[in-house]
Design a protein around this nucleic acid. Structure first.
Length: 323
DNA sequence: TTTGCATGCAAAG
DNA sequence: TTTGCCTGCAAAC
């Protein structure tokens, strides 16, 4: 389920809590026993996300590649990095990453996680923090494909679509079939690559934006929202899109992704007033322009939002605004 | 309480 | 083109 922004946030959690430490690697479920044995005991040296893919680098050129697919999740527990509330959000940003996990006066504080081994953080399409007071390390819950364990933190992976050990060449092969990711490269080169790949095909722009070799990280929600924000018909042949329009799409995706990585929320209606912003954070139904709003009046023109199938996924759009 | 879908991909057929 | 992943959630009972 998670689109690009979540994966970047997960990689950040690994970068801060696992990189530089020796990691015990196991497969409580058993399905990744062989891969776990290859990595067990090695120090994690890097953690990065490219689009929806995550790569954890271990000593001696071994990588763990993970893709969460539609319902995969990482469950962290122990010493964690939690977001501090932002003043602009009025001190509360919804239930996901703002629930206090740390007892006493340090609640909601990023730096002063004074009570390691108390917090539990689920990172998937949504993030949820709960408090735990259990033994260390905690019992695996559900079908845990991989468990990564340091002295302070544990990360359990469940339900991934991909989970494998790769060498450098294997990682390169995966990266070669991925398009640019604005979190990694926001320069003119990445932008040009996007424009070129997007517009060289006659396929519908709604399909192209979902193609991870055109641009890495966009999923079904961002696709619908980006196209609405551009007032662009999803069926527009990509080849007929001007370079300027394509650059605008890239800029908007860069912006939405940045918001997602920063807040942990898929906020696609930025520029709202205070009250609307609060509503959007509180309710998923108030968070998007068109996504999952079929049959409801368009927020701009009142026309009923249309639902159709495109690329085996549900596509939502306004036939009036996106004519 | 139960059912069916979902913010994807890769392997199987 | 279909299936597996085997989870979390909201809508339907």
């Amino acid at each position: 389920m998670p689109e690009g922004h979540s994966v970047h946030r997960i990689a950040r959690q690994f970068a801060r809590r696992f990189v530089g430490r020796a990691v015990r690697v196991s497969s409580p479920q058993g399905r990744f026993a062989e891969g776990a044995a290859m990595l067990d005991g090695r120090t994690m040296t890097d953690a990065k996300a490219v689009g929806k893919q995550m790569f954890l680098d271990f000593e001696d050129g071994l990588w763990l590649r993970v893709h969460l697919g539609i319902y995969g999740a990482w469950d962290f527990a122990g010493a964690l990095e939690l977001d501090a509330p932002t003043a602009s959000a009025g001190g509360r940003m919804g239930q996901t990453n703002q629930r206090g996990t740390v007892v006493g006066e340090h609640e909601d504080s990023l730096a002063s996680i004074g009570a390691p081994r108390r917090a539990r953080l689920r990172m998937a399409e949504q993030e949820k923090v709960t408090e735990t007071v259990e033994t260390w390390p905690p019992e695996p819950v559900g079908q845990v494909r991989v468990r990564l364990l340091t002295d302070e933190t544990v990360a359990d992976l469940r339900g991934p679509t991909a989970c494998e050990v790769l060498d450098d060449a294997g990682v390169r092969a995966v990266l070669d079939r991925l398009g640019p990711d604005p979190q990694l490269d926001d320069g003119p080169e990445a932008e040009a690559k996007f424009v070129e790949r997007l517009t060289k095909s006659a396929k519908a722009v709604g399909l192209q934006l979902m193609d991870q070799s055109v641009v890495a990280g966009i999923g079904n929600v961002y696709r619908a929202e980006i196209l609405f924000r551009a007032r662009m018909n999803p069926h527009t042949p990509a080849r007929t899109i001007s370079a300027e329009q394509a650059r605008d799409l890239w800029a908007d995706w860069s912006r939405l992704l940045e918001i997602g990585v920063t807040t942990g929320q898929m906020m696609t209606m930025d520029g709202l007033d205070e009250a609307a912003h609060r509503r959007a954070l509180a309710s998923r139904a108030d968070r998007h322009w068109v996504y999952k709003r079929e049959g409801l009046p368009c927020r701009v023109c009142g026309t009923h939002i249309v639902l159709e199938e495109m690329g085996n996924r549900k596509l939502y759009w306004c036939p009036q605004c996106q004519a």
